[in-house]
């Protein structure tokens, strides 16, 4: 797996070094673009989302150069290949997430943002960063990048439009209100569920990739 990680590290540097500039811009925008001198939600989310999709982009590059097949001729299993992509995704997303989480914590300590909002935003970033690759990677491992991408887009539309709409509708119909400020248990649950989904996604990807004809 060390070799696969190293190959991806080189690919990251070659293909995605502009992300560093983007991160700096996103950080600056986050600091100065929010309402009432509070940091913006959009830019951190967007940055975390993009960085969490680096693994997916690398997988597509692997397929285009057929490195995914070549790597299978080396001493590594398909489980190693899947695990490496999830670890790499976690590292890319984790670094970005930690950066913004730290920023929010500093801003909350300086009084520029209330602690409940800091906690919700940090957990939301975690959810976005874990759920995006958790949804996108299994179809890519199962069907390859061409077919997998179409299925992934379909799934995102379903999840965002279908599930989001259904929950919104339910809240409206039942007049349910989300507790504000959120309780620590709710925040912990909101953080735990994406982690569990990410782990389930890894397990599904392993199973699907092991059964795929390369």
């Amino acid at each position: 797996m060390k070799a696969l990680l190293l190959a991806d590290l080189y690919q990251l540097w070659i293909n995605f070094k502009f992300y560093a500039v983007f991160l700096v811009v996103a950080l600056a925008c986050a600091l100065f673009s929010g309402p009432n001198d509070t940091p913006s939600v959009f830019f951190p989310m967007y940055a975390v989302f993009l960085c969490s999709m680096i693994g997916m982009s690398l997988l597509q590059l692997d397929e285009a150069s057929r490195w995914n097949i070549c790597a299978q001729t080396m001493p590594c299993t398909r489980r190693d290949q899947v695990t490496e992509k999830y670890v790499f995704t976690l590292a890319c997303f984790g670094a970005t997430w930690a950066l913004f989480a730290l920023l929010f914590a500093v801003l909350a300590a300086l009084g520029r943002m209330p602690w409940p909002r800091e906690a919700v935003q940090t957990v939301l970033m975690l959810a976005v960063g874990l759920l995006a690759p958790a949804v996108s990677l299994p179809p890519l491992f199962r069907w390859g990048s061409a077919k997998g991408r179409v299925i992934y887009i379909g799934m995102v539309v379903f999840v965002v439009a279908g599930v989001g709409g259904a929950i919104g509708g339910l809240i409206n119909m039942k007049n349910v209100a989300l507790p504000m400020p959120p309780t620590p248990i709710l925040v912990a649950l909101a953080a735990l569920i994406p982690v569990l989904i990410f782990l389930a996604s890894w397990s599904l990807s392993v199973r699907w990739y092991e059964s795929r004809e390369l």
Binding site: A7, N15, L61, S65, C76
Partner: peptide, 17 residues
């Protein structure tokens, strides 16, 4: 596979390396 050397018809190394 530690003891096998393989060359595939299109080699398959990552394009940018």
């Amino acid at each position: 596979k530690q003891d096998i050397g393989v060359v595939l018809d299109d080699v398959g190394y990552p394009a940018g390396l």
